[in-house]
């Protein structure tokens, strides 16, 4: 027992492979960045649909949000990777295959756009009507009102919630190893198969993710709080 405990805490093996393993973290970061950009853009579009004045558009927005917000990440990932290319192939009459990286970005982007849409919507609806009416009264166009009056306030209000979603999204990037994107978890399982010593490797991976996520999230929360305090009157 004490021997195995010592072995699992002895992270030398993990450290030996550090170049390979930490290289995998770059894939996590890359997928995170692409998926976050996609999720923010799609989420904003969905939120605008949900607060639009036309009822059919609101319906489309609601269905979109509920569909992706309630879909488990892993199910979505598998669906996008294995089903979506086939459907597109039938529609376009060609053979299509998604690169795992693309599938990961599309799947996570779609799922997390559902969460962002709700955050955007809550933010948009919290803006006092008078602000928008004042904008109209001075003759601003709807687009100008959105970009000058609504969005700046929405972004400030949604920062804490958005940070939580970003953290969840980064954590979700670990499952891309399951469709063979060579991220940290994927490389850990490869090295494990070679070395046959899962203890230090998986413990090392867990600790690495913990430190990265905890430190980055804490720093971002602290910085965003300071920023909000300086810009919010």
């Amino acid at each position: 027992m004490s021997e195995t405990l010592r072995q699992s805490l002895d992270l030398e093996l993990f450290w030996e492979y550090r170049a390979v393993l930490f290289g995998g973290l770059l894939f996590n970061a890359g997928i995170f960045a692409c998926a976050a950009a996609a999720a923010l853009a799609l989420g904003l579009c969905a939120a605008l649909l949900r607060v639009s004045l036309a009822r059919p558009l609101r319906w489309v927005g609601t269905v979109y949000v509920e569909l992706f917000r309630n879909a488990p990440d892993y199910v979505m990932l598998v669906w996008v990777h294995f089903v979506l290319p086939l459907l597109l192939g039938v529609a376009l009459r060609t053979r299509i295959e998604f690169h795992p990286f693309l599938s990961a970005v599309v799947a996570l982007g779609l799922v997390y756009s559902g969460y962002f849409a709700e955050t955007f919507r809550a933010g948009i609806q919290s803006i006092p009507k008078g602000n928008i009416e004042a904008g109209r009264a001075v003759g601003m166009s709807e687009r100008l009102i959105l970009s000058r009056i609504t969005l700046p306030q929405v972004v400030r209000r949604m920062v804490p919630e958005a940070l939580n979603i970003f953290v969840s999204l980064f954590k979700a990037t670990t499952i891309v190893s399951l469709i063979a994107v060579p991220d940290l978890m994927y490389r850990v399982s490869m090295v494990t198969q070679q070395e046959m010593r899962p203890l230090p490797l998986y413990t090392g991976a867990a600790l690495t993710y913990f430190v990265v996520i905890f430190v980055v999230a804490t720093l971002l929360r602290w910085a965003s709080e300071r920023w909000r305090r300086t810009v919010l009157v």
């Binding site: 953290v167 954590k171 996520i213």
Partner: peptide, 22 residues
């Protein structure tokens, strides 16, 4: 903080491979 900041997939692998040995 450890439970909250570790991805569920990593925890699953960790519990599945490391705990039984330790």
């Amino acid at each position: 903080e450890f439970f909250r900041a570790t991805p569920i997939f990593v925890q699953l692998m960790w519990v599945n491979y490391v705990w039984p040995e330790v």
